[in-house]
C-alpha cells in the first residue's frame, strides 16, 4: 500500500472536515466507495443508510437493557445466560453480535478492554470512545486496572475484586453495573437515565439518584 501521508504523525485528536486539505486516506475512501458503487457491490443509498444506523446507536440502548435487567429478574437471568438472545427477545437489535453480559456485585467489579484492536458492543453503545482504542488504555487495563480506574475517578471499596475482560475473539461484552441505592421505587425508564456509558464499560459506576431530577 502506498504510504504517502507521512506529514501528519500523532494527529489523532484532529477533526478532519470538509475544509481541510484532502488527505490520502480520504482520497482512498472516496475512490473505494465510488468503485464499489460502480461495481454494484452496494449503492450510495446503502452507505448512507448504514451511517444512519451507526448514528442511531448510542449508550442509551445499552442503558435500556441495563435498566430492564435491574427491574425484571427473569430478563436479567436470560441476559446473563445468553446476552444476544435476551436482547433480541425484547426487540433490541444486536445483529450478529455475540453478547456476554457480566454483572457487578458487592464483591466483583468488571471492566472491558480489547488489547488486540477495538472490539466493543457497538450495537448497544455506539462507536467506541477514542480512549478505548488508545495504546495507553489497551496496554494498561490488563496490567494495572486499578490505576486505570483511578484515572477515571473510580476507587473501589476494599474487598472488591477487579475482573477484567479482554475481547480477544468472537464475544462482545457489556457490564451490568450495580443498581444505585435509593432507587427501589424507580421504574426502568427513570433508571435508564442513571446508566452511563462508562458504567457499561466498567470504568465508572451508574450515577447516584440525586443527579437526575424526578
Amino acid at each position: 500500500m502506498p504510504h504517502d501521508d507521512v506529514d501528519h504523525p500523532h494527529r489523532r485528536p484532529d477533526r478532519p472536515d470538509q475544509d481541510h486539505p484532502l488527505t490520502y486516506a480520504q482520497t482512498l475512501e472516496i475512490a473505494l466507495r465510488e468503485l464499489l458503487v460502480e461495481k454494484e457491490v452496494f449503492t450510495a443509498e446503502e452507505i448512507n443508510a448504514q451511517i444512519s444506523r451507526m448514528d442511531s446507536r448510542s449508550p442509551a440502548i445499552g442503558a435500556q437493557v441495563v435498566a430492564r435487567a435491574w427491574t425484571d429478574p427473569d430478563f436479567k437471568a436470560r441476559l446473563l445466560a445468553d446476552g444476544s438472545a435476551a436482547c433480541r427477545a425484547v426487540g433490541v437489535e444486536v445483529e450478529a453480535m455475540k453478547l456476554v453480559v457480566v454483572e457487578n456485585d458487592e464483591a466483583t467489579h468488571n471492566m472491558l478492554v480489547c488489547t488486540l484492536c477495538s472490539c466493543y458492543p457497538r450495537n448497544l453503545l455506539g462507536l467506541p470512545p477514542d480512549w478505548y482504542k488508545q495504546r495507553a488504555y489497551r496496554t494498561r487495563a490488563v496490567r494495572e486496572p486499578r490505576k486505570v480506574l483511578a484515572e477515571f475517578g473510580l476507587t473501589l471499596p476494599e474487598g472488591v475484586r477487579v475482573q477484567v475482560h479482554d475481547s480477544t475473539a468472537d464475544m462482545r461484552y457489556l457490564v451490568l453495573p450495580r443498581r444505585p441505592e435509593g432507587t427501589e421505587a424507580w421504574d426502568a425508564e427513570r433508571l435508564a437515565a442513571l446508566v452511563t456509558r462508562d458504567s457499561m464499560i466498567g470504568v465508572g459506576l451508574a450515577s447516584p439518584p440525586e443527579t437526575t431530577p424526578a
Partner: peptide
C-alpha cells in the same frame, strides 16, 4: 501493543463524515 505507561487521554474527537463512510463500507463489504 506493548509497554505504554502514559496517562489515558480522555479527549474525544467528533467522527468526520469520511471516517463514518470508511466504517460503513467495511461493514457492508
Amino acid at each position: 501493543l506493548l509497554g505504554e505507561q502514559g496517562a489515558i487521554d480522555l479527549d474525544q474527537h467528533d467522527f468526520a463524515l469520511w471516517e463514518k463512510r470508511v466504517d460503513a463500507l467495511l461493514v457492508l463489504a
